[in-house]
C-alpha cells in the first residue's frame, strides 16, 4: 500500500460576500496548470435552489516529483446561496456572484506510488527503514514544497476575494 503522509490537514478558508465563481475556479485551475500539476476533478455538483445555487467541488490534483515521491493537494470547495448580482464600478455595470464560500485544503506526500517496494515483506521493511532514516532529508524537502504550494494557492485565493471585498 502506498504510504501517505499528511502535510496539511483541513486548512480552511471562509468568505462571504461578492466574488466571481468563474474567476475563482479559473484561478485555481490556472494555478495548478502553471505549477505542472495533473488535473483531477473528483466531484462537480451544482444545484439550483430558490435561495441560490449550491456548488460542491472536490479536486485532487497531483504532481510527481520523482518515481518515488508524489505530491497531492486535496481541495474541497463548498459554495452556498450563490446569486448573480449586478454592481456598478466606475460607471460600468459588472455581473458578479454573491454568496458563501468555504475551501478546505489538505496536502499529502505519497511515497512508492508505483508500488515497487511492496512485493514482499523484505522490500516493505527496507522501504520503511529508508523512509524513516535515510530519505528523511528528501521527504522534508518535498513536504516543504507541498506546504509552500498550498500556502501560495491560499494567498492567491485570498487576494482574489479581497479584490471583490473592496468593490
Amino acid at each position: 500500500m502506498t504510504e501517505r503522509e499528511t502535510v496539511i490537514d483541513k486548512l480552511r478558508l471562509t468568505y462571504e460576500g461578492l466574488f466571481s465563481v468563474q474567476d475563482l475556479y479559473k484561478l485555481i485551475d490556472s494555478y495548478f496548470e502553471d505549477r505542472n500539476y495533473d488535473k483531477r476533478e473528483i466531484k462537480n455538483y451544482e444545484t439550483v435552489k430558490p435561495e441560490g445555487k449550491f456548488i460542491e467541488l472536490e479536486m485532487e490534483p497531483w504532481k510527481k516529483y520523482t518515481d518515488y515521491y508524489r505530491n497531492i493537494i486535496h481541495l474541497r470547495i463548498l459554495m452556498d446561496n450563490i446569486k448573480e448580482v449586478e454592481i456598478e464600478k466606475e460607471g460600468h455595470k459588472i455581473r458578479v456572484n454573491q454568496g458563501k464560500v468555504q475551501i478546505i485544503f489538505d496536502g499529502y506526500i505519497e511515497t512508492d506510488y508505483e508500488h515497487k517496494w511492496e512485493s514482499n515483506a523484505m522490500f516493505f521493511f527496507l522501504r520503511t527503514l529508508y523512509n524513516k532514516y535515510f530519505y528523511l532529508p528528501y521527504t522534508m524537502r518535498y513536504t516543504g514544497s507541498c506546504k509552500a504550494d498550498i500556502q501560495a494557492l491560499q494567498n492567491q485565493i485570498k487576494d482574489l476575494l479581497n479584490v471583490y471585498r473592496k468593490r
Binding site: V21, Q22, Y25, K26, D29, S30, E33, K39, E41, N44, E46, K53, I55, L57, I82, N97
Partner: peptide, 23 residues
C-alpha cells in the same frame, strides 16, 4: 485529458458555473 475536454463540454452544455477548462 481528452476525457477532461468531454467533462468541460458537458459542464458548458449544462451552463454550470465551473465550465472553464484551463487544461
Amino acid at each position: 485529458y481528452r476525457a477532461y475536454k468531454l467533462h468541460a463540454l458537458i459542464k458548458e452544455h449544462l451552463n454550470m458555473e465551473t465550465k472553464e477548462n484551463v487544461f
